[in-house]
Simulated scan of single mutants.
Amino acid sequence: MPKINGNEIRIGNVLEHNGGLWSAVKVDHVKPGKGGAFAQVEMRNLRNGSKLNERFRSADKVEKVRLEQKDQQFLYENDGMLVFMDMETYDQIELPAELLGDRRPFLQDGMTVQIEYHEAEALHATLPQKVTCKIVETEPVVKGQTAANSFKPAVLDNGLKVMVPPFVGQDELIIVDTISMEYTERA
Rank of each mutant, 00 (worst) to 15 (best):
residue 1 M to H: 12
residue 166 P to N: 14
residue 137 E to Q: 13
residue 127 L to E: 07
residue 148 A to N: 14
residue 154 A to R: 01
residue 39 A to G: 05
residue 72 Q to S: 05
residue 154 A to L: 04
residue 168 V to R: 01
residue 12 G to V: 09
residue 57 R to G: 05
residue 51 K to A: 03
residue 104 R to S: 02
residue 6 G to F: 02
residue 41 V to I: 12
residue 24 A to G: 08
residue 121 E to Y: 11
residue 139 E to A: 10
residue 89 T to I: 01
residue 121 E to W: 07
residue 63 E to P: 01
residue 99 L to P: 02
residue 42 E to G: 07
residue 15 L to K: 13
residue 7 N to A: 07
residue 157 D to R: 03
residue 33 G to K: 12
residue 158 N to L: 02
residue 149 N to L: 14
residue 151 F to S: 14
residue 165 P to A: 04
residue 164 V to E: 00
residue 168 V to M: 01
residue 66 R to M: 05
residue 108 Q to R: 14
residue 180 S to T: 15
residue 106 F to S: 05
residue 52 L to H: 14
residue 37 A to C: 06
residue 45 N to V: 11
residue 96 P to H: 00
residue 43 M to A: 11
residue 166 P to L: 13
residue 45 N to A: 10
residue 149 N to H: 13
residue 48 N to G: 04
residue 33 G to N: 12
residue 36 G to Q: 11
residue 6 G to W: 01
residue 184 T to C: 10
residue 146 T to M: 05
residue 153 P to G: 13
residue 54 E to S: 09
residue 74 F to K: 02
residue 141 V to M: 01
residue 158 N to R: 05
residue 40 Q to K: 15
residue 30 V to H: 09
residue 138 T to M: 02
residue 118 H to I: 00
residue 178 T to H: 04
residue 69 Q to R: 15
residue 178 T to F: 04
residue 152 K to F: 08
residue 93 I to E: 09
residue 83 V to W: 03
residue 113 V to E: 02
residue 160 L to E: 15
residue 88 E to T: 06
residue 107 L to T: 03
residue 11 I to C: 07
residue 156 L to W: 13
residue 27 V to C: 07
residue 85 M to R: 08
residue 113 V to W: 02
residue 33 G to P: 05
residue 56 F to G: 11
residue 108 Q to F: 01
residue 21 L to V: 08
residue 145 Q to Y: 08
residue 29 H to Y: 15
residue 65 V to H: 08
residue 5 N to W: 06
residue 151 F to K: 15
residue 126 T to W: 03
residue 14 V to T: 15
residue 65 V to N: 06
residue 53 N to E: 14
residue 7 N to P: 00
residue 61 K to T: 07
residue 109 D to M: 04
residue 9 I to W: 12
residue 2 P to L: 14
residue 42 E to R: 14
residue 118 H to R: 03
residue 29 H to I: 11
residue 41 V to E: 13
residue 153 P to V: 12
residue 22 W to K: 04
residue 64 K to F: 00
residue 81 M to K: 09
residue 3 K to W: 06
residue 151 F to G: 05
residue 157 D to Y: 01
residue 97 A to F: 00
residue 180 S to K: 13
residue 49 G to E: 11
residue 119 E to C: 00
residue 173 L to Q: 15
residue 95 L to R: 11
residue 104 R to C: 00
residue 183 Y to D: 05
residue 156 L to N: 13
residue 98 E to G: 03
residue 114 Q to M: 10
residue 46 L to W: 09
residue 184 T to E: 15
residue 42 E to H: 11
residue 64 K to G: 04
residue 27 V to W: 06
residue 3 K to I: 05
residue 131 V to S: 11
residue 65 V to E: 10
residue 97 A to I: 03
residue 154 A to M: 01
residue 57 R to C: 00
residue 67 L to A: 08
residue 106 F to P: 03
residue 152 K to D: 09
residue 57 R to W: 08
residue 125 A to T: 04
residue 114 Q to A: 09
residue 131 V to L: 07
